[in-house]
Amino acid sequence: MQTKRTIFGNRWLPYLLLAPQLAVTVIFFLWPAGQAVWQSFLREDAFGLKTSFVGLSNYTRLFDNAEYINALKVTLVFSVSTAALALISSLLLALALDRTIRSSRVYTTLLVWPYAVAPAIAGVLWWFIFNPTIGIMPYLLERVGYDWNHALQKGDAMALVIIAAAWKQISYNFLFFVAGLQSIPASMREAAAIDGAGPVKRFWTITLPLLSPTTFFLLVVNVVYTMFDTFAVIDATTGGGPAQATMILVYKVYDDGFIGLNLGSSAAQSVILMGIVIALTIIQFRYVERRVTY
């Protein structure tokens, strides 16, 4: 691992400098993570009096549990739809911005600020807009003959959380797509134009392939976002309902652990989630070009 050519010779100072970070890491990250792993092998009896070691049974039970399988499916649908919606709309905006040189700063300012809006607030805003009794969207949908009610209809609930989650993520993706587009040398597109490629053809043959590292990076980031950071969106809108229709994995860990007090199962779910994050992190570091090098 890289250091400087010359280094300071102090014996204790480096440990002192690292102490705060490592203390927080051990106490609030490693220890709880270890606890989660340990608890995932235990089960409490119905009265919380006796705890016994049950091996992998918490895990096997999970995969026999229809609710958990449902949560897996819900997470998949939610993640893929949200990521797709957020990526495609932000790419369109970035491409549009790339054509408007003069006014680009104004548009950028007008488009980036939702990054600063908390996922929970985004949820509340869209929840209000889609409120079945007074919301503007149900009112408009009723005009075209659709009866919106996300408190009762599963599809409506899923649509609501997808829209709220994607809305919040657009500005982040937009900024990275803009940066990605700017790093494509103008000479490439000019060369293609001279070769007679029209704007649409140029997009598919030049721009999109050259954007693929950015797209892949954003895909990973968006998946992580939809799997974890959207807890607040769900909690502020549907609370996982109706009938588990928006019960994503992260929300279920919370629901089982804090509301249902089923610690063994919640811990096993935590461990599975950790596995997913670790896999995503490895993908991000192995296959996505990063400035961090080891």
Binding site: F28, A33, A36, Q39, Y254, M274, I278, T281
Partner: peptide, 14 residues
């Protein structure tokens, strides 16, 4: 690799 969301209960306990 360990966001709060995946270790909610034990972190709360600590």
């Amino acid at each position: 690799m360990l966001p709060v969301e995946v270790r909610i209960v034990p972190t709360f306990q600590v």
